Simulated assay, not measured.
Amino acid sequence: METLLTNLTISLTDFKKNPSKVLSEAGPRPVAVLNHNKAAFYMVEPKLFEALTELAEDLAMTPLLKKRLAKRDQAIEVDIDTL
Rank of each mutant, 00 (worst) to 15 (best):
F49N: 11
F49E: 13
A51F: 04
A51I: 10
L52K: 04
T53N: 14
T53Y: 13
T53M: 13
E54V: 08
L55K: 15
L55R: 15
A56P: 02
A56Y: 10
E57T: 14
E57W: 12
D58L: 10
D58M: 09
D58A: 15
L59P: 01
L59A: 08
A60T: 10
A60D: 07
A60Y: 07
A60W: 04
M61K: 15
M61W: 09
M61V: 00
M61T: 08
T62V: 15
T62Y: 05
T62L: 10
P63G: 06
P63F: 00
P63C: 03
P63Q: 01
L64N: 07
K66C: 03
K66L: 07
K66S: 07
K66F: 00
K66H: 03
K67G: 03
K67E: 12
R68E: 09
L69R: 05
L69N: 06
L69S: 03
L69E: 04
L69I: 02
A70S: 10
A70G: 10
A70V: 00
K71N: 06
K71I: 01
K71G: 02
D73E: 12
D73P: 02
D73I: 07
Q74M: 06
Q74L: 08
Q74P: 01
I76P: 02
I76D: 01
E77P: 02
E77W: 01
V78N: 01
V78T: 03
V78M: 01
V78D: 00
V78R: 01
D79N: 10
D79P: 02
D79K: 04
D79A: 04
I80E: 08
I80K: 10
I80D: 06
I80P: 07
D81C: 08
T82H: 08
T82Y: 04
